[in-house]
Design a protein around this nucleic acid. Structure first.
Lengths: 384, 384
DNA sequence: TGAAACTCGGAAAGCGCTTACCAAGCAACT
DNA sequence: AGTTGCTTGGTAAGCGCTTTCCGAGTTTCA
């Protein structure tokens, strides 16, 4: 078909492309349609649209008029193929196991944190004309690696929320395409963005130990092997040791970053007759929510008998009773910075000088004192 | 360059593509690399990979071996251009105005609902090998329409969370590409997916009126012109009228679907000396959170003096004090269904018979009684 | 008035894939 | 052995863009 015209490109079958109501489905107009309407070649159209070699005024106007009339928008696949830029960044989130959420929500509440980070990315991405291609992967899934490589081929860069790939896979991936990790550690070919866990946790620990005078603490960890959780735990342990304060820790104090995980851990400890420390420091706010619940169920007063703290300062933290003391990270900034970082690595060629590869970027954190640590109820709501 | 070979396609400069550690940055291997390694033509490679015309056993093996060795994954842009399928669905979320969140979170908490819907989409999308391209748009932005059309050209279909486009734009868009709306109304060329607002609200209203015997209610609406909010309000009004119960409504009872909006509205009413109805029915859970806060601040007992209800039954609803009575929609199902719907419209050609165009799909809702309506505290936590 | 220096559109190659279409190889038939 | 019919791999066109390269037209200056 359509061998009627000798040109290379297609003749774009959408004859009636002009705005109005044609058939129930119109093909989107192509650059050929625009060229035809404007009475010019597709090269001229492209040049006007991409601001190359500034074309004559009249040419420009004819093109612009035709574009407006047809509502032409270039097809991204064709453009991507040609300029080797998709204007898309892939984002990989770790999907929690469904089995986890039994006593808490059926619909999981555990993705708030990554979602907020993504929001931060998205906003700055837009300023650069980029979009985010989001994919969640199940850790157990054997094909996880392949999925991520597939995503990589749909994107110009990748942001990984969690440690999912093996070091070898990560290495191979990151030399094909810019990769930024969140809450991991940078490698020679990747950059990493994270909140200042250490500083935040130290501030929190000192507050509990010196301002409140608590002498027994515990650390309710996040899921296994999470670098964030480890760093936080280490900082806490260090402060505790320095002050000669007892810190309970270990397998029975392991949560999952989720409310259910925190609840389960405390439930077991209580059932086992373990007496609670004066303060429970949770690896994140979600865990603290679970802890708060179980404590309330057992009639244990917070912060009267046991103080509880979170980490992240999610919006929900101030809506709890008691309001949750936490360490704030600017979650959106985390995302924004992660995006800016991949972005800077993108056109920037392979191993160009300005590259962010191998860099570890820390964002500031801040202690937010509320009621659950034993501070007096702050004035009003939402106080920081 | 590389005019050395007479073939049409490129010679793919990535000479050293083989796995190991080459330069710090390798070009991802192309199908030409695979063909070379396998000693076959790119056509054969493609056929093996796409299961066409089942090739000979030996050919298949050689290709597969080469693919594995190189870690080849086809470039999506090239593939998309060729098969006219990007395997991407665009999702448009309405970004709330920043100015809104003053007394509540700086980091907005208002996106939980759309984020959970997106999660639902994402999971089923993956089963079809699709990814979601997510973009939030600011309602005030004059260019909003253009942004959406641009997104459309990066996708095979679109899911719109909110009414953002003018009817004309929506019409033009939806005849170029499959469009599904959430919480809107279907048009001749789009499908719509929504929760059964009417049924849910009627159940809630009857519970408040007949089970609890409340005789004055109010409806704290969502943002202006939201079809969901309107439908819910109408159902409530209808039930109230039928039972001869007073329903307060109107401009001063308008919220914004956000905690801050609900709080502000109630704050103003109290300041104006308006006495509260026996029960405040909020358009969604977020609004109810704001209402709960302001009521608590003013020492008004919930549900003792005033009952409060939400809608959506977000996970956070059961973590409030008192636990929030709400109407549950399976949020993830909303997303999953929306995706399945666009998906069914995608390759399905223009106006093919099986098309979902014009259809309005309603998902069931269920009343969840907790404390805030005046029911006795349910057993334990997380009870439904 | 003729040559040199520019300006500006068009033709065409190429981005990495898929997929007709073709031709070679081979088995099986008359 | 000569043809038919099938299988299978290669050739090349084409997807919708961008961009290099050319050549025709216009200006500038001797």
């Amino acid at each position: 078909m359509n061998s009627d015209l000798g040109t290379t490109g297609a003749g774009s079958a959408a004859g009636h492309a002009s705005a109005g109501q044609g058939s129930p489905t119109d093909q989107p107009p192509t650059i050929y349609d625009v060229a035809r309407v404007a009475g010019l070649s597709i090269a001229s159209v492209s040049r006007v649209l991409n601001g190359q070699r500034n074309p004559r005024q009249e040419t420009r106007e004819r093109v612009l008029r035709a574009v407006a009339e047809l509502g032409f928008v270039p097809d991204s696949a064709a453009r991507a193929l040609s300029v080797r830029l998709k204007e898309v960044v892939g984002v990989v989130v770790r999907r929690p196991r469904w089995t986890e959420s039994t006593m808490f929500a059926d619909e999981d509440e555990n993705l708030q944190f990554p979602d907020m980070i993504n929001r931060g990315m998205e906003i700055v991405a837009q300023r650069h004309g980029f979009d985010l291609l989001i994919r969640s992967v199940d850790l157990d899934e054997p094909e996880a690696g392949r999925h991520i490589f597939a995503l990589a081929r749909k994107s110009d860069g990748l942001i990984l929320h969690d440690r999912i790939l093996s070091p070898e896979e990560l290495d191979r991936l990151s030399r094909q395409i810019p990769v930024v990790t969140l809450a991991g550690e940078p490698t020679a070919t990747t950059a990493n963005v994270h909140g200042d866990n250490e500083g935040g946790m130290r501030a929190l620990a000192r507050h509990l130990i010196f301002d409140h005078g608590y002498r027994t603490l515990s650390y309710l960890a996040g899921h296994d092997g999470s670098p964030d959780s480890i760093t936080r735990g280490r900082a806490l342990a260090d402060e505790a040791a320095g002050a000669g304060v007892t810190l309970l820790t270990g397998e029975e104090w392991r949560g999952s970053y989720q409310a259910a995980g925190g609840a389960r851990a405390i439930e077991r400890l209580i059932a086992a007759g373990v007496s609670m420390p004066r303060a429970i420091v949770c690896a994140n706010d979600q865990s603290a929510i679970g802890v708060l619940h179980v404590l309330a169920q057992h009639g244990i007063a917070v912060p009267g008998e046991v103080a509880v703290t979170g980490f992240d300062d999610m919006p929900v933290a101030r809506h709890l009773r008691p309001q949750l003391t936490s360490v704030r990270q600017s979650i959106q900034d985390l995302g924004a910075t992660a995006f800016e970082t991949v972005y800077s690595m993108i056109g920037r060629g392979p191993d160009a000088d300005g590259s962010a590869r191998g860099r570890d970027i820390a964002l500031p954190t801040r202690l937010i004192r509320r009621e659950s640590c034993g501070c007096s109820p702050a004035s009003g709501l939402g106080t920081q």
